[in-house]
Design a protein around this nucleic acid. Structure first.
Lengths: 120, 120
DNA sequence: CGGCATCCCGCCGGATACTG
DNA sequence: CAGTATCCGGCGGGATGCCG
């Protein structure tokens, strides 16, 4: 049994699931892996996400120490998000998740479909 | 965009999160990795889980093709759960999640505590 | 531009009781 | 032994509107 931040876990992997579980966290981390991104740009990249949700997910990633929020005191406001060192260490794991995911769905070929872009 | 079983994903890793997210799934998979386990034994191993929850989590893992449910038509009833081939392919990934989890919490030494066994 | 406040709803999971 | 059935509360997430 592990106790971390007022919660109990039976395996440290459960903690990691909590870190990356959230409607937009994976996508955010994937984009940030390519370099710093502004809030506005994230909104463009994830048009289906509401401002509120995007903000919430970013705040969680930040308070979990995976990303860094940098505010530039200029007008108009500019906020840039980037991976922290811990966040960068996530990359190989996310890649592995992704690879297994691909292997997995390929086990069920007739249940999968792809769309190049979905703007709805 | 990937469409799989009536849901949309932006990355295959999101599918994997769905597979293993659930209050008892990680623990169940970890136990099954050591060999087949009976329902009753799982209950002993996870005393905090209600029968209902244990059943639900097992049913999900089964319908996702990660575990196999084998019923022995004897009296009293005997049901044995084991990893499927797909489920066994999960092991290295779960190990990696676990390792990152350990690395992660070690970045915050003063927020962690351990308990050998928690029967509450 | 990059938020926060408010209201709302569905679903995951808890508690308890019953059964082949 | 290995489950269903029913009821119910909390929280993740959606929609909309306001602000420095």
């Amino acid at each position: 049994m592990i106790h971390f931040r007022d919660k109990s876990y039976r395996c440290t992997s459960e903690i990691v699931l909590g870190l990356v579980s959230g409607k937009w966290k994976i996508s955010i981390l994937n984009y940030l892996a390519k370099g710093p991104v502004r809030f506005n740009e994230l909104q463009r990249l994830l048009p289906e996400a509401t401002q509120r949700m995007l903000t919430m997910q970013l705040r969680m990633l930040e308070s979990d120490g995976l990303i860094i929020r940098k505010v530039y005191p200029v007008s108009p406001p500019k906020v840039e998000y980037s991976l922290s060192e811990l966040g960068e260490q996530l990359t190989p794991m996310l890649l592995m998740l992704c690879e297994f995911g691909t292997t997995y769905i390929e086990s069920f070929p007739d249940e999968v479909a792809y769309t190049s872009h979905k703007h709805a």
